Every structure is written in structure tokens, then in C-alpha cells.
Amino acid sequence: MYSSALSEAPLVREPRHAPVAHVVRGGIVEGVHHGSVVVLAADGSPAFQLGDIEAAFYPRSAVKPVQAVAMVRAGLPLEGELLSLAAASHSGEERHLAGARRILELAGLTEDDLRNTPDLPFDPVVRDAWVREGRMPSRLAQNCSGKHAAMLYTCRLNGWSLDDYLDPAHPLQQAVAEIVEDLTGQRIARTSVDGCGAPLFAISLHGLARAAARITTAAPGTPEARVADAMREHAELASGSGRDVAALMRAVPGLLAKDGFEGVQVAALPDGRAIAVKIADGANRARIPVAAAALARAGVDPARLTEFAGEVLLGGGEPVGQVRPVRALAPQPLPAARA
């Protein structure tokens, strides 16, 4: 299906995004969200593309399943809920914090060993409760704490240093970079720093979709399959209660999905069909309806995607419009892979 040879790094350029969603109010296009979309067929070939799928971009947290695969390949023994949490952008609910603490306990470590940026919980309801209770930002509450706890556990198991585990030259981050290149099939274009402090690797949108497809089509028991199974079976550990990405995985059997800041979404089916979306202005309201339209174009039954059709716009408290994918994304379903 895929070549084992790495292609050159994607070009660093201003992305040639295209309109992907319209903000329609009273039958008039009030606003336009630009972005890029790729849909991969089951054989790995691009079956549909819109915008610029080859320019270098930062996948943000949408790359966390790949980071989790790298840690499992390096010996991380987590399964189920805790492995899902290792790939999470969690909401900061108590079960998320308890899971991150458990990973640290398994490593013989505490919250003080984390090096991610302290923050309040991501979920607005949970965050508001923290503020009312006078609780301060913490490393454990920050949405990437599960990943960071798993990184520390991986380091402890391999005898790697802990204080500098976020350094791009650290053995852990070198191992992650190697797996990013392996699964995307391309060399990394540039390395920066994500919001949580971890190294962030620039790849292409096409490469991100290819990585997700490789994870979902991996043989049972492999690190890739372990990560995919954990995230699908424990979707709310990888996100949170009420989060659209968890609802998407529940709605589409076998789907692996992960979101990322700045309007990034990736999803893949067990037969290798995959989609990846980047919203140019980072607008969250365009991310999920565009992703749902891309999934319909990949062959997912549109009836399973109706709740992700797009945010309803209100006027005087009444519905007067909606955020809608552009017509170019209208479903033209792809066939599933042959048995």
C-alpha cells in the first residue's frame, strides 16, 4: 500500500488554501473559512484534495496518536484508558487528572516532574468550577498532561534523563521524530515548540492523513493497533465529555479521530480510508463540519454524520443560518477496500 522510502520534507511556504466552509446567514454567505482538505482512498492514494495538502504545517495535537505509537515502540506498557490518555488532549476532568497521576505513579514520579505548561482545565464548565473554587493553573490540569506523564514513564523505563525530556535532542524526542517520519512517509520540514512545551514537527496535511491510515491498518497487537484500539474504546479519555471528536468516534464504527489546535482534524477508518483537515484561521466552528463532509466523501454513511453538519447561527434567538462546507466537498463516496 505504501512505500517504505521517505519522501523529501514538504516545502515551507504560504499555504495555498481554498474556501472550505461558508458562514450562511439568511441565505447569504456572510463569511468564508479557507483551509485545506485531503481524502485518502483505501490504497493510500489521494482521492480528493482541496487547497494545499503538501505545504509544511504544524499538526498540533492531531499528531498525538503518532507520538503515542513512538512511546509504545520504545517500551511504554500502557493499555486501555491510560494509553488513550497518553494520546489525549483531555478536558481536565477528574478522571483525566487521576489517570495522569496513575501514569506518574507507575513511573515512580509526581506532578513536580512534569515539564508541560501549567494551565486551567480545557473544558469550560470544569474550568469555571476551578476558578470558583480558587484553584490555580497546574501542570496536571493542562490538556497534554497524559502525554507528558507517558513521556516521563517512557524515559524512566529506558533509563533516559528526565529533566530535559522535552529537548528535541533528547533520546525520547529523537525516537518520536523517527516515528513521525516513518508513519507520515516524509522527512520533517521544521521543528518548533507546541503550546505544552513539547517539540512540534512540521509535516504536510497529506502526511498526517497517511500516518493516521497506517495506524488504523496496522496488524493486531502492534504499537499502532494498540494505540488505535485504546483511543477508539476510550474516546472520552482521549478528549472529554461532550467533545465532538469523541462523539465522532462513537458515531462511526472503527473510526480513529484526533483534533488539534488551530483548526486541525484527522480521522481514519480500519480499511485505510482517511481524511485530514486544516482550517486556515484556526476556527473550531469550521473544523468539524468540514471533517464530516470529508468523511462522507470518503464513503461514511452521511446519516451517521448529521449531528456534525455545522454550527447553527442565531438571530434574535432563532435559527437563521449555518456554517456549511462548500459544495466542492459534497459527497461522492469512495468504495471501501476489497476484502
Rank of each mutant, 00 (worst) to 15 (best):
I288S: 00
S7K: 14
R273S: 07
A276F: 04
A286N: 07
A202H: 14
Q142C: 00
E30Y: 01
T117Y: 03
R95S: 09
A339G: 15
D281N: 14
E307M: 15
Q67V: 13
S138E: 14
H34Q: 09
P168S: 10
E30G: 01
A18R: 15
A337W: 10
S161Q: 05
D229C: 01
G185A: 11
Y58G: 05
A235Q: 03
L255K: 09
P65I: 10
D182A: 13
V264H: 14
T217Y: 11
R190F: 10
P121T: 04
A47Q: 05
T110E: 09
P289H: 06
A286R: 03
M71L: 15
G254Q: 04
A286K: 04
G197P: 10
Q67Y: 08
K147N: 09
L314D: 06
E94W: 14
L114S: 01
R60V: 06
P223H: 06
G317N: 05
A175E: 11
F308P: 07
V37I: 13
I288K: 07
A328E: 15
L314N: 01
L269D: 05
E262R: 07
L237H: 15
G31H: 10
A298T: 00
A18M: 11
A218V: 04
G316Q: 08
V277L: 00
A257K: 06
I103D: 03
A219Q: 15
L314C: 02
D229I: 00
T216M: 10
R304M: 13
L109Y: 02
D164L: 00
A228D: 05
L255A: 07
G27R: 06
P289K: 10
A246G: 11
R102E: 15
A292Y: 12
P46R: 00
I188T: 14
L305S: 05
D123W: 08
A336S: 12
D194M: 13
Q332G: 09
V72F: 01
A339V: 11
P331C: 05
L6C: 03
Y2R: 14
S89Q: 01
L295A: 03
F122M: 08
N143L: 09
L248W: 04
A274Y: 02
R297E: 03
V63N: 10
R297C: 03
G260H: 02
L114T: 00
Q322K: 14
L50F: 12
V323P: 03
A303N: 09
D163L: 00
E262Y: 08
A309G: 13
G254N: 01
R226G: 03
A98W: 00
H22E: 15
K258A: 07
D271M: 05
S204K: 12
E262K: 06
G242K: 08
A247Y: 03
R324E: 14
H148Y: 04
R135M: 12
P319K: 13
A209L: 13
P77W: 08
Q173Y: 07
L76D: 03
D244Q: 15
G242A: 07
P333H: 05
E94F: 12
S192M: 11
A228G: 04
E14I: 12
S91R: 11
I279M: 12
G195W: 08
V264F: 12
E93V: 00
I279N: 09
E54Y: 02
G26H: 10
Y58F: 15
K147P: 02
A267N: 05
M249R: 09
A198E: 11
V320C: 13
A88Q: 02
R214C: 05
T184W: 12
V29I: 15
L162P: 02
R95E: 12
H234W: 11
A267D: 06
H148N: 06
A298Q: 00
